[in-house]
Write a protein that binds this DNA or RNA. Sequence first.
DNA 1: ACAAAAGTGTTCGGGTTACACCCATGG
DNA 2: CCATGGGTGTAACCCGAACACTTTTGT
Lengths: 226, 226
Amino acid sequence: MIQQQIKVAVDAVVFGYKDKQLNVLLIKRKVAPFKNSWALPGGLVLEHESLEEAVVRELHEETNVKVNYLEQLYSFGKPDRDPRNRVVSITYFALVKPENYEIKADTDAEDVAWFTIDRLPELAFDHLHILEIAKKRLKNKLTYEPIGFDLLADKFLFSDLEKLYTTILEKSIDRRNFRKKILSFNILKELEEKVSEGRGRPANLFQFKKKEYFKLKEEGFLFDIK
Amino acid sequence: MIQQQIKVAVDAVVFGYKDKQLNVLLIKRKVAPFKNSWALPGGLVLEHESLEEAVVRELHEETNVKVNYLEQLYSFGKPDRDPRNRVVSITYFALVKPENYEIKADTDAEDVAWFTIDRLPELAFDHLHILEIAKKRLKNKLTYEPIGFDLLADKFLFSDLEKLYTTILEKSIDRRNFRKKILSFNILKELEEKVSEGRGRPANLFQFKKKEYFKLKEEGFLFDIK
DNA sequence: ACAAAAGTGTTCGGGTTACACCCATGG
DNA sequence: CCATGGGTGTAACCCGAACACTTTTGT
């Protein structure tokens, strides 16, 4: 049999929530093909590393972010998806808290930037397609896992959480029912601190009780937001 | 940069429902490593073919089955998962109607057989792990997509469907509520034919209205069985 | 005092759950 | 006529959906 020539890459769709908008992290490619196009961060997997290690490494090298949540998304392998070589890409879905990291282009990338999800540049390869799939995953997963908290700051307002849901799910939510539901799960800690957002009544800060959530999950609890 | 040496394979977890039991299709390996061990059907992806094409080809070559339902499951890439080469495997989840096909070992396989899910032989590589993940996917998906019908004969009894659900989900179901629920979806056609299973009152045959289901799905209908 | 955002309860209806008896056939 | 599996309806309960006014602050 002929020696197989397929290359293995990883790419990541990294979501961040900034200025009450959903954002994606993109890099500007330094090399052909698609030189100077914007693309998902990623690159070839090295001999000795696992797929997850490759993603984490590439994200660090290219963008300097550390992800808060990471899971495999899907693998793409159409023979012609890369015009030069046959490349199979295992893609990942990541969430970060943008305020925690200073993004900066490093080795392989000409530039790095956050783009709001509805003002995207043209993307290299099939990366737009991958992004669409990631958006679906995000929307879906938001309803049955508490991953919204991986996009918000450590301490957040209830209105932030609500805004995040309405923004990502693209539908309005009844404030009372939403609050009632979330609080009934007992996975939030209400802090004493209050924050005044300009005008209006100051709001309470909350924290996600991650450990308690995982314990509840073990016991069969299901997070579920319609 | 050193030329990347990672190989790309596909493997499939093929489920069939035989004798009121969930079965998996396995092959006996002809070549090292794990020569003569049982394993998931699969193999290296060829230069010119997509991942799906590779799975379909391998299944045909190794087992002679044609799948009824196929979706990507997960990709595995730990550096040491194959003792000889670095192999990344993109795995697939497939459903077949066992009565439709004559399985037979062909080119690459020493033997092929159905194994009931709770009497498995030792499996090669990390294939047991993959199988566990596929089982979870099956259990889960059964509740929100009508994939049970891809495991049953074209015409089936309601009791077959119910048995399939109780078997795979490993819990009992109230017959009346189950029937009411499924029938309310309007995705089954009740045939005139009746079948007598030995003793007892003869039962009605049903067919899954696939087209109607997909039309309903387009319109926002959600299949959902608790 | 007014504008802006936060916080809070109740009612209604639909869907899920629980539950038991009669029917049609074969032996 | 008995054993076996098939087929059917109703009542209770719970959860999700709808809905509007008061509170606290800044200007």
